[in-house]
Design a protein around this nucleic acid. Structure first.
Lengths: 168, 168
DNA sequence: TTTAACTTTCAGTAAATATTGAAAGTACAG
DNA sequence: CTGTACTTTCAATATTTACTGAAAGTTAAA
């Protein structure tokens, strides 16, 4: 396969994967482009390569910076901003996990805790079932949460090494 | 908090969480409703409770059955179909992980493997960066894949027990 | 200052996704 | 068979989400 084709396909694949997991397709494509860029890219280069508008490029880049998946890089004596991606995939995974935990898991955890305290007679099947399920979910989410904390601190080889050794 | 309010809030929370993770909001809400139902529910009961159309209810239920998160239940001598959810949350998590792996991770893995074989001079920075990144990603996705396989076979207490013990 | 090179915003529009509901399909009881 | 109690489908529509591009904002060099 030719390089240009491979690049096109990678960007497309990454975009699709992103949108399947609730991440805006264009943002994932910009990320893909920066992941394989050997040097920092400017907004104009990204617009050109992905054929997107300035507004869209700016927004995607801002979001990626907020996710800490990319950072701005400035050349001395030049106004233009360039962007570089974090290229260590384990680090990328950790940042995504951390961010999604903070934005999505923590709020759910808090709500589940509240919902466990629902008023009503535990002898009613409805209430019993509800309380039990909130308990199970709260417990599970708590464990997931702890697992992410662990991943955040861990080194890749150690993490997968330990995990996969347990499999045998 | 009153039961009706807690129920409403749980269904809403679960729907939001689903849509943040690329799962149709209504499908997640139907799932939530069945998770807390002490007995099987019919399509009409679900339509009524969530205020959705017959078509939408039918489609969401079919999808949930395909994900093996719920199953049909028939009462002898009755035409109507009822639905029950798998209530063991560890089992639910495993089924979701298995399904997403199959639908989304496996195809990406296959493509990454192909993309590693891109033609071109490894001395060119572009190609070198690309090949390296495909290698890193392929490696990472492979490990995630194996971790899910492990989870599929494991018992909840053992899995989290082992994982969280490693944290200390 | 002013000008110019750049970045950000956001109202309007386009595209993607989800939902409805009525018609068609299915299968069982009589 | 035939009626009826259901389930499924799908074209039309509504809703949500993403994108554009021009105007406003910012910053620094002249």
């Amino acid at each position: 396969m030719k390089f240009e084709e491979a690049k096109r396909q990678f960007i497309q694949t990454w975009g699709t994967l992103g949108s399947e997991w609730g991440i805006n397709r264009t943002m994932a494509q910009v990320h893909a482009l920066l992941l394989i860029a050997p040097q920092p890219l400017s907004t104009d280069e990204i617009m050109e390569e992905l054929q997107i508008s300035r507004g869209n490029a700016n927004m995607s880049l801002r979001d990626l910076v907020n996710w800490t998946l990319i950072r701005k890089e400035l050349n001395p004596g030049e106004r233009k901003e360039y962007f570089v991606a974090e290229k260590d995939i384990w680090e990328v995974a950790r940042r995504i996990a951390t961010e999604r935990k903070r934005r999505e898991i923590e709020p759910v955890k808090k709500i589940l805790t509240q919902l466990k305290t629902v008023e009503g007679d535990q002898k009613k099947a409805e209430i019993k079932e509800f309380t039990q399920m909130m308990g199970q979910l709260g417990n599970f989410v708590g464990k997931m949460d702890k697992s992410v904390d662990m991943m955040m601190k861990a080194d890749e080889n150690w993490f997968f090494g330990t995990l996969l050794k347990l499999m045998k």
